[in-house]
Design a protein around this nucleic acid. Structure first.
Lengths: 238, 238
DNA sequence: CGACGGGGAAATATCGATTTTTTGCTCTGG
DNA sequence: CCAGAGCAAAAAATCGATATTTCCCCGTCG
């Protein structure tokens, strides 16, 4: 009935609670490096920026700390987790391993389902994926559809346990991707990997698919690593 | 100078903040299933039990939610994450994969370091590990040393990224271990796996070590699965 | 000149009270 | 007997104020 859904006095944004709004805002800020890696997250400032009390902010930060996007030290506050080449590589390795695991599992469990999900995700992705290879930088839409493509690999798992962990790792890598690929665009080859993977699925070639996944992710790690300006761990700063 | 370290009016326990105390208490309660899987976590009750305000409790719960030990739904509160056979298997598979990955990496990177760390951890573990095979149930000390043994495998990684994720998965499995092994004691063979792994390290046999790790973890998953009373996902309850 | 320490400003951590939302129950009409 | 409206109690979410701790500047002493 009501066009605006049950206006409450508080909630400004479209989130069900202030905590969720703060969580989304902070997470996005971190993943886009609008909040710089290693920088201090001062509660009072965030309070003024987000126009909400400190309680929901602390709660959102605690959640992000649990996810590894924020560091916290008792009585000292919160920081955006720093980035480092070493972490980039470890996350990349782990992501590749998990995807291959999921891929094999899905291929062996329900090949048809995987083919459907992946095909659907690919069609959605390629609309926006191609453009990013030319002029546009990686943006939210791109990343959302790209993520959807890769999570389709996990369709063989019923419980969301594996997927949740994967998504966390993916998110942590998203920050590196944007840091290292942002302005340079993307190698067309890396984009094409996705359609090639789909072909391997259709051909029921598990080995080729696994290798492709590994290389795909390793390539991105390398691209990022060669583009970023820092070589050593970026410790705490402003 | 001060014998009691800077007595503050608040902090009762030995934790640097109430949030940390609540976090530790809740985490422990969940891992031991003293807080039953799927059960509602009512803020007012926790407030009375822990004798602290709601703010630090919410913060601790938010952190646990980020780690996957607690589920939360906007405006509806917090629940202990439910358990399921499917999740047990996925976590087991992922743990095995990560350990093998770490093992290979450590063997190839700095074999000597791994041997030292693992040997040290083994000596510490076997004191308490043997007893658990007979009469004693798995307890905090056992689990702490057992964890230390397995985390020694990660000594090849500099950045703590991989280790953090592993520890999270390990913890989530700890709950299942205690649920399924608690009273029945432990198969001696499973305990011996650890010394056998050490032998493989000394013999520099990567393949044998990897296989042992996989089987070791898979065995525990099987033991738990056959001992627990539930077969299907345990949804939300009291 | 550098270690030390006082002291106020800044920032964090926590509480108690208030506002909103959800949950159960009861009553009513069909 | 069931669906749904209407309340009251319970629980969650949030705020503003306060207590506590850390940070940082600066003067002093060796």
């Amino acid at each position: 009935m009501s066009p605006t859904p049950a206006k409450s006095r508080r909630d400004t944004s479209g989130y069900p609670s202030l905590t969720e709004g703060a969580y989304a805002a902070l997470r996005h800020g971190i993943l886009t490096s609008h909040l710089a890696p290693g920088s201090k997250l001062v509660l009072d400032h965030l309070k003024d920026q987000l126009r909400i009390g400190i309680a929901p902010i602390r709660e959102a930060l605690a959640r992000l700390a649990g996810e590894g996007l924020v560091d916290t030290e008792s009585q000292r506050g919160f920081w955006v987790s720093p980035v480092s080449v070493d972490e980039l590589q470890q996350l990349g390795e782990l992501r590749a391993t998990m995807e291959v695991m999921a891929f094999r599992h899905a291929m062996e469990t329900d090949h048809r389902l995987l083919q459907d999900r992946l095909g659907e995700a690919w069609r959605s992705f390629k609309e926006v994926g191609q453009r990013a290879g030319e002029t546009e930088p990686l943006n939210d839409t791109w990343d959302e559809r790209h993520l959807r493509f890769h999570t389709a690999l996990f369709c063989g798992y019923e419980s969301p346990a594996m997927l949740r962990i994967y998504v966390n790792i993916y998110a942590r890598l998203e920050r590196y991707r944007r840091l290292g690929i942002d302005r340079k665009g993307f190698l067309a080859g890396v984009i094409d990997d996705h359609s090639r993977l789909l072909e391997h699925v259709e051909a029921h070639d598990i080995e080729a698919g696994s290798q492709l996944i590994r290389r795909h992710i390793q390539d991105v790690v390398e691209i990022v690593r060669s583009n970023v300006g820092w070589t050593e761990p970026r410790a705490r700063g402003s």
